[in-house]
Amino acid sequence: MITAERKPMEEIFRSLEPFGKILLVGCNECVTVCHAGGRKEVAMLASALRMGRLKQGAPLTVDEMTLERQCDPEYAEELALVVDQYDAVCSMACGCGVQTVAERYQGLPVLPMVNTAFMGSSEKNGVWAERCAGCGNCVLGMTGGICPIARCSKRIFNGPCGGSSKGKCEISPDVDCAWQLIWDRLKQLGQTELYSQIMAPKDWRSARDGGPRRIVREDMAI
């Protein structure tokens, strides 16, 4: 999922200073799962904003709405019926959702209420960790299902480096060395020959280095 965290309240209050009536819009997808911008978080932030602004003596009207998937134009369209009533739309979705809404409602300020973080998975309740860097050319089949890009601090392809010590990365004793994990897993799978294969330098054009990316499926685009 795409993970996110609510922005600091101070920053949110500052960004909403010019407005008197806003629509706070959540998303039922990733940000619901990581407890950053689903229906509950929308209700919490709405309540906090109402109280905070009342305390400041500058009441703010906050209406709440949560879309099924904010990054899809067909769901963003649901705002069309009500959006004219507001000074601004405040989105609790990831950056994709914010931009989808901003693109659809060009005349209206659309503000992000969360900081989008990374693509990750849940390690346990309340803990999410980065697992995928979206590099566009997956090598997990070679590395025992552990990503050397998302989970190695140096993103190296033929590790480990000299900073690996007792299974941990030199940047912090809390960070596992991805290449230690890869080696352990390859041993467990009986696939250590994969480790001996030198991986060629990666063509990063399939990642962000090639510019903004698009996927076009002509069979679906009818």
């Binding site: 600091p8 309240m9 101070e10 209050f13 919490m44 906090a48 904003l49 109280m51 905070g52 305390k55």
Partner: peptide, 8 residues
């Protein structure tokens, strides 16, 4: 924490 952040 949130109540502190909003001044309540």
């Amino acid at each position: 924490t949130l109540l502190d952040d909003i001044g309540i």
